[in-house]
């Protein structure tokens, strides 16, 4: 098993300027290190043979990757936001969404805690404004 703690806010690097952007998981080196096995599992789904193997025996297929228990559960339960919090990168985790037949808007809705209809309407209405969404303090206390 991976010895790294899957916790966010890793203690072994200095704070970064971008840490205060809310609802955003910058895929820096620390994040990448935590998520390596999770992302490499997702990457493997680029190959049709692997997609077939994963479809036939999901548990057996996941055994091939050095996932933490939390990562494995997040994958099995399709917790899209939690996968990011455990080191996932959206371009990788989206491979699993493609496998499930989901669109980026469906995954976006799940990660931001709204329905697909609400998310898709928000985009048609011009997307999520930057105003009020630049700094963590703008989200706190609401």
């Amino acid at each position: 098993m991976n010895a790294d703690s899957p916790e966010r806010a890793p203690s072994d690097r200095e704070p970064r300027e971008y840490d205060d952007i809310p609802g955003t998981y910058v895929f820096d080196g620390q994040h990448s290190r935590l998520g390596y096995a999770l992302n490499m599992f997702c990457m493997s789904l680029n190959e049709a043979d692997n997609r077939d193997a994963f479809a036939a025996d999901p548990g057996g297929y996941l055994d091939r990757f050095d996932l933490t228990a939390e990562q494995r559960a997040a994958i099995e339960e399709r917790k899209w936001l939690e996968m990011l919090q455990l080191g996932g990168n959206i371009y990788y985790t989206f491979k699993l969404a493609i496998f499930d037949g989901l669109s980026m808007q469906q995954v976006g809705a799940s990660m931001s805690g709204v329905t697909f209809e609400e998310f898709s309407q928000m985009m048609i209405d011009g997307g999520r404004s930057a105003d009020g969404n630049r700094y963590q303090h703008e989200w706190d206390g609401n």
Partner: peptide, 9 residues
């Protein structure tokens, strides 16, 4: 694309 802030424009 990612996180709770997905959809930012």
């Amino acid at each position: 694309l990612q996180g709770e802030r997905a959809g930012l424009v």
